[in-house]
Amino acid sequence: MRKNQEEINEIQNIEIELLLEALYRRYGYDFRDYSRAHVKRRILNRLASSQLKTISNLQGKMLYDKQYFESLIRDLSINVTEMFRDPAFYRLIRKEVIPVLKTYPFLKIWHAGCATGEEVYSFAIILKEEGLYNRTQIYATDFNRDVIETARRGIYSIENIKNYTAKYQKAGGKFSFSDYYLAKYDSAILNQSLKANIVFAEHNLVTDSVFAEVNMVVCRNVLIYFNRDLQNKVLKLFDDSLIKGGFLGLGTKETIMFSNIASKYTCINPKEKIFKKKIS
């Protein structure tokens, strides 16, 4: 008998829970507390474009076939990013955060969920222009190995450069954006000197622990993919790695307001979501 869509929906929800459990137990990637609507949409899209009939079939294939598992991970991890996304964020960093960072002899900054690296290099440019780069150690992490590789290379499509140039200027850029890359065929190769103090590494925010004590954590547009519980857990991880007086920079639509760490921070700007850890 043909099942109605509501019954199917109920069954699919069970299947998705089982698939996420299987994914975690077999491969160690934990998506159980990601936004369920996001995960479901991605899995249903993958199912629709495959020959498989049900999510249960998809689970079986994923368990036995490592390559299939990897394509599933790519579906679930959204790596969309750009340089100087939200220029107002970077302007505020220059105005409110840099002056404080300048008071330290040596700095560590952690970019968590850095995707293909555009955000990290944007930050590096700001640090350079503010004369801070040479005393900064940047850790740039993501749980997706492929994007870390791309980030390490620092070569991007020339198509985006016009947009990035405009954004660089809006972000308060002091020079010409073309100072920072070499155009070759259809690529823009970022200057080697931007990479000197960046360490790229694989790190999973859900399952790995703190690895350094830092002056600033930048984690933008990653928490929106998590449910409230997981957001809370990951914010605790950031709190554990931030020194007192350190800064936390989130995406425009992310906040610490509903988390357990809220009371330990002051909000520097309600619109751009930069928080400062209180001294006491």
């Binding site: 609507a37 996001h38 959204i78 969309v80 929106i224 993919y225 639509k253």
Partner: peptide
């Protein structure tokens, strides 16, 4: 739905935003 974000409805009747393609 905010500019530059997708709006998703969760089955527990909360909302999520995303920056997917």
């Amino acid at each position: 739905a905010p500019p530059n974000y997708h709006l998703l409805v969760e089955e527990d009747f909360t909302l999520s935003l995303s920056v997917d393609e």
